[in-house]
Design a protein around this nucleic acid. Sequence first.
DNA 1: GTCTATAAGGAGATAGAC
DNA 2: GTCTATCTCCTTATAGAC
Lengths: 228, 228
Amino acid sequence: MTRSIWPPRGVRLVAKRLLSFARPVHGVNVSAVTSPLVWEHVQPAAARRLLTGAVDAFAERGFQATTTRDIASRAGMSPAALYVHYPSKERLLFEISLYGHNAALEILRSADTGPTPADRLRSLVSAFTAWHAQHHTIARVVQYELAALSPEHLAEVATIRRAISTQIEQVLADGVHDGSFAVADLPGTTLAVLSLSIDVARWYTPHRGDPESLGKLYADLAHRMVQT
Amino acid sequence: MTRSIWPPRGVRLVAKRLLSFARPVHGVNVSAVTSPLVWEHVQPAAARRLLTGAVDAFAERGFQATTTRDIASRAGMSPAALYVHYPSKERLLFEISLYGHNAALEILRSADTGPTPADRLRSLVSAFTAWHAQHHTIARVVQYELAALSPEHLAEVATIRRAISTQIEQVLADGVHDGSFAVADLPGTTLAVLSLSIDVARWYTPHRGDPESLGKLYADLAHRMVQT
DNA sequence: GTCTATAAGGAGATAGAC
DNA sequence: GTCTATCTCCTTATAGAC
């Protein structure tokens, strides 16, 4: 699967840091604002402003409800200027989704450490959950805007999703193998563990607590789900 | 909060049964078709066909991406005919969302039975999870289209959401009180238990297994999360 | 209650000046 | 690289015939 001809100027998406706010509704995050600091390496700055504006708008209203005028005005530009940096609104979504999926996978890969399957599971769930809280605007786009991707872009992202799923499944399988976990339904339990963290993107707002504490709580809950 | 002047002809939404199909993508349900059998008591039949068409379309593409032409054509009508039965596209969403929230709450209320908190929790999680699987098209609209509701309609639905949350929290509190549960963070664990079931709406397709088995698995996982 | 026709406005994307 | 202006198409919703 080629990345095609876009972006043309060596744009690189590298994670840094993200701050966010949100207006809470019971059990649901209906609004959010993202700081541009995560996207520091998207160049030039105008492309980065468009991208962060798009993340905020997509997270807050959804892809379809977001207009190119909305994205452009968040970046302080006219609608036409968007097309100098991105060939379409969908490409903007794809860049965000691809970066977000890769970031989530990287988080898991570097968290898969520890002497026992229990340690590894706790580390994985803690990191994956905290990422979904910390980066909940990006995570909302990643988890809930897949249907707006073109079939080709969806296929590319689905490959990364499979790798994410495999990362969790392997730890559970290892724990079953060495007798430290009791898992009646491996695929079902894998999905449940992933599910718990992913759903954080739906409801998280900063007033719900800090991402690290949430990660610890969820690591504990996930471990309890499988321990013998 | 009044139900206002709509619907004008004593339309009643009563749960019956629902069958569904979906095209699977890795970890995500991007397509779904709902049978009209759940909405049997929405009268007249034309209003019911519009409603079921709207459920399918909203679940598959989201509220904003769904056009009134799409809904009308699924019901075998011209776009204009929609407005004889519903005053706007948003009202159609509200009817679905209100019915869905009430149905989910009723499921919980009638499942809150058993001699011990553990029995009650297993029954609640099993029923709530199975409902989200069985009625995953409705559940998708219920859980993921809240932002498209008008502020007044959102407020009405938020009241029901609070009742749903309270239902779970009370059982956990009862288990902590009688010593059968160990819960470090009651609101956080309540949210996690709800979250596990709710996220089923995002990924469930019939090929993932039957709703009852999934309910049993999730009841077990939720119980493990809190037992001493 | 359903249709055809259409109003009124907004959408994504492009042209061409600067 | 950004702007203003605009193209073309599609949107929600209404008017009025049958």
